[in-house]
Design a protein around this nucleic acid. Structure first.
Lengths: 261, 261
DNA sequence: TCCAATTACGAATAAATTATTCAATACGAA
DNA sequence: TTCGTATTGAATAATTTATTCGTAATTGGA
């Protein structure tokens, strides 16, 4: 900030050419980036040596130093506020970055809604379980598969009934040191609630990851994790929803990595 | 961020002197501020011309450009990244938020490394393809499955050979209006490159999503998407890698949602 | 108003920095 | 091994930056 400020402050006590330079730089700060001393001189209409002397008068060793100082100054000021986005998620119309914005929002909400103790409970439940059954509503099948894969990779005995026809049978064979994971969006899915209830009768622990609202699946669970859906158009909302589910799952996996056994 | 990232990513395929330079710059980024090309050359122990050539090889006009880019990169990292992340995900220390930190970093890097035009090309390639074969190295199988599922849900004719034994056969039956998607981490996987080459002989377009470096799979592709790996301990790195892959895939899906048919 | 005395300015030039050429050498694939 | 390619640094060209110096403009008194 200092450099540009200094220029503004001294503007009044400057000579004609110096003021021309100062004004130009203050108005076209970002142009300086790729101007050499003589280019700047031409642009302003002064001699190249004046540019150098101007730099030195402001206390810099020469033109390159001034240039850098101006750049620092500009970056410091502009970044924090408006230009930061542009720089940060550089090409702002790339699908990656626009999605990134929304995703960030959803993930933030998801982070803030889940209580640390529920997560911790989920992690130790998974770690301590003998077998893990995973059940999902149609919209979360791909996420469920992903979870299953990750758990198997970690050495957990996880099973996911792709079609859903065997859900009840598998649940019936669970024991009290097993875990049932339910993934769904609304949490109203009849069959899932049914499975959860039957499992609980056997003393099986139930973990649910659902949309954040008052729903049947969540109510009938011992451990409750949530996802906060976005407010976008339906298809995109589903995408973001799964993304957030995946985020929670990644958190579980990373928790398991940190505290193995 | 891009410049320093690029250096890190390319480090492995650099020549001796180039690597020396890269290492020095990565380790002493802030020193560069007041080093001339020959000072840097002396500090590293190479010739001044090597410094210039290094700059040019990385895509800059010359040493001053590189210097500025490094400076931007460094400043950008210091401000935007750190501060912003702190603001967003700092509330608690639950597994969700600590993971969030790292994840954000990886995603940011991934966003900044992928060119918008490559993404756009990927999206239209998927949209226009008659059939899409998906092939993946072991570490990316779960991601590949996820991608397959999403594409099927969008009505794209996608197929993924789980075990990998049929890869070649399926590839051979692709036509020139088809697409082959390759997902892998290092991109060296023999069989995948082989599949890509055979497919290309049939005029099939190849899209790759690999770790950001100079790798065989990427080279033999028409459309190249990348993921920038983190520097964490291995298991976590893999987790984050997949997460970033998923992010790119989500971007593709969201792109397809926006421009259907 | 006029006259030093100081300051500002730019052309010319010196100095420094950066970029290119080129020849020697190292490296890899055949 | 051999050929072709890539890497490297010394020499040098080109560009950029800094200084010198002479002239012009400005200031501040008589």
């Amino acid at each position: 900030m200092t450099c540009l400020l200094k220029m503004r402050a001294m503007r009044d006590q400057m000579s004609v050419n110096e003021r021309k330079l100062a004004d130009f730089i203050l108005d076209n700060t970002q142009l300086l980036r790729d101007y050499s001393s003589s280019q700047l001189a031409d642009a302003v209409g002064v001699s190249q040596s004046s540019v150098v002397k101007f730099s030195q008068k402001l206390g810099y060793r020469g033109y390159p130093s001034l240039k850098l100082a101006v750049y620092e100054s500009y970056a410091g000021a502009g970044m924090a506020a408006d230009e930061e986005k542009a720089r940060h998620f550089s090409q702002s119309d790339s699908p990656l970055s626009t999605l990134g914005q929304k995703k960030l929002e959803v993930l933030e909400n998801t982070v803030s809604i889940n209580e640390a103790e529920q997560l911790a409970a989920a992690i130790s439940a998974i770690r301590d379980a003998r077998c893990i059954q995973i059940s999902a509503c149609p919209g979360s099948v791909s996420v469920a598969r992903y979870l299953t894969h990750q758990l198997l990779e970690l050495g957990c005995w996880a099973v996911f009934d792709e079609g859903g026809q065997l859900q009840q049978r598998i649940a019936d064979s669970l024991r009290d040191d097993d875990l049932l994971c339910i993934l769904c969006d609304f949490g109203g899915e009849e069959s899932l609630v049914e499975v959860a209830n039957r499992a609980r009768e056997h003393g099986v622990k139930v973990l649910s990851l659902t949309r954040y609202n008052y729903n049947a699946a969540s109510i009938h669970s011992d451990i409750r994790l949530y996802v906060v859906p976005s407010e976008d158009e339906e298809a995109l909302q589903r995408l973001l929803f799964r993304s957030a589910q995946l985020h929670v799952i990644e958190a579980l996996v990373s928790g398991l990595l940190e505290s193995p056994q």
